[in-house]
Design a binder for these strands. Structure first.
Length: 262
DNA sequence: AACGCAAACAACCGCACCAGG
DNA sequence: ACCTGGTGCGGTTGTTTGCGT
């Protein structure tokens, strides 16, 4: 499985840097050093630790394997579901996904996705149409109608007249982002807003979801919103999966499913 | 038993971001 | 304002193992 026997040595001109699989002795040295002195500088701690590795390599080994509380072993069914759900929304943000799974590393999740889940999800996507209940309101005369659970998408012509983000009702604010919400299994998923007006990562995933919906009638409006309204909102990062969390980079506010600010 | 292919996954690489000088 | 070094992240590679033929 792993690259155990390849222990070649490559000279970088100054000193010999070891690459390839880590030996038990190297692991022991790294752990012992960190336990004693802590992590202060990956590049400079290599030599006193007695390792012939790059700082980067040491960091990777520590983060992915030696760090305390790392879970080794099979990904559980529950973890698998979390990965799939978060990937659906977040895309390939492995580090963010890993942060929701205590003891798992981004590398592990990435590998697991690539080897186990990617094909499976692609297959399931082909076989099963998305069955979430999504309604879209793009009527310019009815722009603030939001019935939970549903999607409210503001018409672009309304977007510029709403003033500061604080004045905008939460669910519309996120629609304005310019972004979109998808209600799935009674949860509202909100993607982060596009600063570049194009679809990337999780945005592309949601975009695909939206496109596959039978009753999605306002896709062109959504498209129209994207490039325009970035200036209306603060730099924001939305969190997902168990409700709507809307994070303002300046004030750090949160909004629950019912639109309450806190 | 031998071979070939695919799966698994640790490790490497390149890039982007950020802080400090 | 620019440069440099450190760090983190996502993509990719390299090697072993398992399984089918």
């Amino acid at each position: 499985m792993a690259r155990y026997p390849r222990v070649d040595k490559i000279s970088n001109g100054k000193k010999t840097v070891k690459k390839g699989a880590w030996s038990a002795d190297e692991d022991r040295k790294l752990v012992a050093y960190i336990m004693r002195y802590g992590i202060w500088n990956w590049t400079h701690m290599v030599e006193p630790a007695g390792l012939a590795r790059t700082g980067k390599s040491c960091r990777l080994r520590w983060m992915n394997y030696l760090r305390p509380n790392i879970k080794h072993g099979n990904i559980t069914k529950e973890e698998e579901e979390i990965i799939i759900n978060l990937h659906r929304v977040l895309g390939k943000r492995w580090a963010t996904i890993a942060s929701r799974l205590p003891g798992r590393t981004d590398n592990e999740i990435k590998n697991y996705w690539n080897t186990h889940l990617k094909k499976r999800c692609a297959q399931e996507k082909l076989e099963m149409p998305i069955a979430c209940d999504v309604k879209v309101n793009s009527n310019p005369n009815n722009n603030l109608t939001h019935q939970n659970p549903s999607i409210a998408i503001l018409h672009p012509t309304e977007a510029t007249n709403l003033g500061s983000p604080r004045d905008i009702p939460v669910l519309h604010a996120s629609s304005l982002c310019p972004s979109h919400e998808v209600v799935h299994d009674d949860k509202i998923l909100v993607n982060r807003w596009h600063s570049r007006g194009n679809m990337m990562g999780e945005d592309a995933n949601l975009w695909e979801q939206l496109q596959s919906l039978k009753d999605f009638s306002a896709i062109e409006d959504l498209e129209g919103i994207c490039p325009n309204s970035g200036s209306l909102l603060p730099s924001s990062e939305c969190m997902y999966s168990d409700g709507v969390y809307f994070r303002d980079s300046q004030d750090d506010f949160t909004i629950d499913l019912w639109g309450n600010w806190s």
